[in-house]
Design a protein around this nucleic acid. Structure first.
Lengths: 196, 196, 196, 196
DNA sequence: TATGAATGAGAGTTCATTCAT
DNA sequence: AATGAATGAACTCTCATTCAT
C-alpha cells in the first residue's frame, strides 16, 4: 500500500541497470555494435524497449558504459597478477585459464571484438587507446624472465613472445572459436607456444 | 565515336562487377555485415550508390555472392593440398603461410568473421554449414599421420590437434591480430603447437 | 492517529486538484500545450508524475479544464463591467489595468496564447469559438458611445476601435512583452489609441 | 538519359533546401517548435519525411538555420533604415507597414514567437541574446529625436516610447492578432501611440 | 492517497532501395 | 550504363499513461 522507500527504489534501480548491462553485453558481444538493435537488448533483458532509456541516454552510452566498466575491472585485476602464487609457468597458465573461462566469455569477446571493429563509437576507440594491451604484457615480462632463468620458458625476446601468445589467446576468445567436438584448445597445448 | 559492341559491354560489366565485389569485400571484412552501409561500398569502389543495384539485387545478395565465391575458390585450392611438395611438416607450414598472407587477408577475415557472426543473412549460415572447416581437417589428417610416423608431429589424436591448430590460425586471421610492433606470430612459433 | 474523515479527505482532494491546476497553468502558459511535459507539471507542483492521473484523466483533460474554468471566471467578471464606477474613460482604463495586472498574468497568457495556437486539443478551439472576444467588445460598446458623446473618445466606429485596442492589449499579455528596462507600456500611452 | 550535370544538381539541391525551409517556417510559425512534427513539415513541402534529413541533420538544426538566416536578413535590412526617404514620422510609419506586411508574416511570427517561447533549442536563445531588439530601437532614436524637434513626435524619453511602441507591433505580429472582421489595427491608429 | 518504475504508441532519424534524368 | 535525389520501412528515442507497491 505504502510507496517504496528510497533505499528500496535505489536497489531496484541498481538491479535494473545491472540487468540491462548484462543483457546488452551478451547481445553486443555476439552481434557487434551496429548489429545489435535496442529491441534485442530489451528482449534479452525481458523488459520494454523504452525502459532502457530510463537507465541510459542512448544505445551509444550504454555501449560505452559497458566497455568502460569492463576496462576498469580488468585494470584492477591486472594489479594482482604479480602476487599470484606458483611458478612463472603456473602463473601464466592460470591467467590463460582465467581468460578462457566460460564465465568471462562475453566480456572478453566484447572487448576484443570492439578493439578491432571499425563500427564502434569514437569514444570507445579512445578508451582502447588508453588501456592498451601492452599493460598486461609489461606486467608479465618480469615473470617471464624469471621463468627463462629457471628454464621454464625458452630464450628469445620476452616481449615478442608474450605479445604473440596473447594475440592468440585474445583471438580465440573474441572469435568464440570453440570447436563443437573438441572445444577450446587445451591450455597445455597453447602453452607449447611458450616452450622451446 | 561508334557505340561499344556487345563484347566490350560485357567486359565493362564484368569489370564493374568485380570492382564492386572487391570494394565490398574490403568494407564487409572490416565492419561486418550490418556495420557496412551501401554508401561505404560505393565510396570504396568510387561509384554512385545506385550503380550497385545494376549489378546486384541487394546488399544481401552482394554479401552472399562474395562469401559463396570465396568458399568455392577455397574448395578448389584445398583439392591441391595433397599434391603439394615437401614433408608433411613443410606442407602444413606452407599452408599456414598462405593463409596468413597479406594478400588473402580480407578474404579470410570476412569468411572467419562471418562464420561466427550472428548478424549475417540466414543463407550465409547455410553455406558455412555445408563447407565446414572439417573438409580442410579431413584432407590434412593423412598428411598429419604421415608426419607422426616420421616423427615430425607428436602423438595424440590428429583431428583434435589439427582442429585446435586451425582454430588458432583462423582466429588470428579474422581478428587481424597484428601487433603493431611484432606483426603476426611467426609461423614457426605457431607450429610449436604441433610439436611435443 | 485516527484516519481522516470524509470531509477532510474531500478537502485534501480539492486542495491537490487546485495545486495541480495552478502548476499546470504556469507551465502551459510559458511553454504551450505540446511544449509542456507532464513531468514538468509534476515538478512545478512538487508531486509525483503519477498523481496527476488520480485527479485528471489526461494531460488533455487537465488543459481543457483549466481553459474552461478560466473562461467561466472571465465571463462572470465581465458581467460586472457595466456597473463599474467612474467615467467611460476611467472604466476602460481600469479594465485595462486589471488585464495587465501581474497577478492575472498566467491566466491571460494561457488564454490568449491558446486562442491562436494550432497545437491545442480540438475541444479548446470549440470553447474559444463560443466565448468569443466579441462578448467583451459588445459589453463595452455602450460605454464607449457614452464616452464619445461626452467627448472622452474620438468619433469613428466603436466596434472597430475597441476591437483593435483589445487585440493590442491581448497581444501584449500573451507575449509577456515586458521590456526589461521599461516594463509594459503605460496604460495612458496605450489609451492614446482611443484618442483623437 | 544522361545523368544531370553538377550545375543542375546544385540547383535542385538549392531549390529543395529552400522549399523545406519555407514549409518548415510556415508550420513552425503556427505551431511552435515542439508542436511541429517533422511529418507536418514533409506534408507541407510535399516531400517524404526522410528527405528532410538529406538537407538538414535534425529538426533542431532546421529550426536553428531558419531563425539564424532570418536574423541575418533582418540585420541587413535594418542597416538601410537611416537612409529611407520621408520625414521621421513617415519613416517609422513605413517601417511599421513593412513589419505588418502579409508577406513577412510568417517570418516575424516565428521570430517573435520563438523569442518568448521556453521550448526552443538552447542555441536559439543564444542567437536572440546577440540580436537584441534594442538594435532596432537604437537606430530609430536619432530619427525619433529629429521628429520631436520638428514637432511630429511628443516629448518624453525616446527610448521608452519606441520600446513600448515596438513591443506592441511585435506582439501583434507574433500573435497574428488579426480580427476577422476588422483585420490588423490601422497603422495610423497604431501611430497615435507616438502622438501627444 | 502517493510514488516512480514500467510500458507502448508515436515521434525523430537512418539507410537500403528505387527512379527520373 | 551511370548518377544521386527521393522514398519508406525499420530503427532509435520520447513521453503520456499505467501499475505494482
Amino acid at each position: 500500500m505504502s510507496p517504496l522507500n528510497r533505499q528500496q527504489l535505489d536497489q531496484i534501480r541498481d538491479e535494473r541497470r545491472e540487468q540491462i548491462k548484462q543483457a546488452a553485453l551478451k547481445v553486443f558481444a555476439r552481434r557487434g555494435y551496429t548489429g545489435t538493435k535496442t529491441s534485442m537488448i530489451a528482449a534479452e533483458a525481458s523488459i520494454s524497449e523504452g525502459l532502457i532509456y530510463r537507465y541510459f541516454n542512448s544505445k551509444k552510452e550504454l555501449f560505452i558504459t559497458i566497455i568502460q566498466e569492463m576496462m576498469e575491472e580488468s585494470k584492477r585485476e591486472l594489479e594482482h597478477i604479480e602476487h599470484l602464487p606458483g611458478t612463472p609457468f603456473e602463473q601464466i597458465r592460470n591467467l590463460t585459464l582465467n581468460m578462457l573461462d566460460e564465465n568471462n566469455k562475453f566480456a572478453f569477446m566484447l572487448i576484443q571484438r570492439s578493439r578491432k571493429a571499425d563500427d564502434v563509437p569514437e569514444k570507445v576507440a579512445q578508451i582502447f587507446e588508453q588501456h592498451s594491451t601492452n599493460v598486461l604484457i609489461d606486467l608479465l615480462i618480469p615473470i617471464f624472465i624469471k621463468g627463462q632463468n629457471s628454464g621454464e620458458f625458452p630464450l628469445g625476446e620476452p616481449r615478442k613472445l608474450l605479445t604473440w601468445y596473447f594475440s592468440i589467446i585474445n583471438s580465440l576468445i573474441i572469435q568464440d572459436q570453440v570447436d563443437e567436438e573438441y572445444g577450446l584448445p587445451d591450455v597445455d597445448v597453447l602453452m607449447r607456444i611458450l616452450k622451446k
